[in-house]
Amino acid sequence: MEMKRPTTTLFMLMSVDGKISSGANDVLDADKDWPTIPGVKEGVYQYYEIEKTTDLWSLNTGRVMEKIGVNHKTDVQKKISCNFVIIDNKPHLTQNGIDYICKWVNSLYIVTHNTEHPAINMQRDNLKLIKQDRFDLTGLLEILKEKYQVERLTIQSGGTMNCEFLRKKLFDYVDIVIAPLLVGGKDTPTLIDGEAINTHDQLNKLGVLKLKDLKILENSYVRLTYQVIG
């Protein structure tokens, strides 16, 4: 039976101990820091090369976009053909950040239930607003497929949003590039954070994986691809 939502793949770069950042604050960041660390920087390019081959639709959050600094950027070095879906309820994005992303990507779809989001009053040819009365991840994915014909979607959001996908059984594949690095720190963001389970009857909220591919990359990097089977 055909799914009512896109096929989803969680695609991330992480350390051997599952961290997706260098530390617990916004000053530290994997994209900025890991390319500077001897023994790690030599192979990190492989993640970005693989990233270029992922789906033409990518989902992220305003929180992540804020962290990588889009609100303060102006010049786009190279426009990409990807379409961004960004969940942003706080909001984390400013008008400048939205302008920058519009220049950067093919199309930008901002998802929000915030009635004062800066995107509401912005008119851009490649900007669309998906309004929700409340955050509804399953409903969003159904809208993306039914209204915008999104068949495949790459997920690159932070650990909290990744947990929403996991708990709602909305991951189909997991594609991980592992850097030869141990980060540590209980407050450092991991691949999947969010609320932990507390009882045995919640074990059905875990994600069971089947290994589909393993590639040993250069400079001690590894790529693991799984199918989520339960």
Rank of each mutant, 00 (worst) to 15 (best):
K4W: 04
K4Q: 11
R5V: 01
P6C: 14
T9H: 02
L10I: 11
M12L: 15
M12F: 11
L13Y: 03
L13V: 13
M14V: 10
M14D: 04
V16W: 01
D17L: 05
G18H: 07
I20D: 04
I20Y: 03
G23I: 13
N25F: 09
N25W: 08
D26C: 05
V27S: 09
V27P: 00
T36N: 02
T36G: 00
P38H: 12
K41G: 01
Q46M: 10
Q46L: 14
Y47I: 13
Y47M: 06
Y48F: 15
Y48Q: 10
E49L: 13
E49R: 07
I50K: 08
K52Q: 15
T53F: 05
S58I: 15
N60H: 08
R63G: 00
M65L: 13
M65H: 00
E66V: 06
K67L: 07
V70G: 00
V70Q: 01
H72F: 07
D75F: 09
D75A: 12
V76H: 05
K78H: 02
I80D: 11
S81Y: 06
F84S: 03
F84V: 09
F84M: 09
V85W: 00
I86C: 00
I87V: 15
D88L: 04
N89R: 03
K90I: 14
Q95D: 11
N96K: 14
D99C: 06
N106I: 12
S107C: 07
S107G: 00
L108F: 03
V111S: 01
T112K: 02
T112V: 12
H113K: 10
N114F: 06
H117K: 04
P118K: 08
A119H: 05
I120V: 15
R124V: 08
L129H: 04
L129A: 01
I130T: 11
Q132W: 04
Q132Y: 06
D133H: 06
D133W: 01
D133E: 15
R134T: 14
D136E: 13
D136M: 09
L137C: 05
G139D: 08
G139N: 13
L140C: 10
L141W: 05
E142W: 01
I143V: 15
I143H: 03
Q149S: 12
E151K: 04
E151Y: 04
R152S: 14
L153K: 03
G159L: 13
G159Y: 09
T160R: 06
T160K: 10
T160G: 01
M161A: 11
K168F: 02
K168S: 15
L170V: 12
F171Q: 07
I178L: 04
A179Y: 00
G185D: 10
G185V: 06
G185E: 06
K186L: 10
D187S: 11
T188F: 05
T190I: 05
I192Q: 02
D193F: 02
G194H: 13
I197G: 10
N198V: 14
T199K: 07
H200G: 07
H200T: 14
D201W: 06
L203C: 04
L203K: 09
N204W: 07
L209G: 00
K212I: 13
D213N: 11
D213K: 05
L214F: 04
L214P: 00
K215P: 04
I216T: 14
I216F: 03
L217I: 09
L217T: 04
T225E: 08
T225C: 02
T225L: 14
V228E: 08
G230C: 08
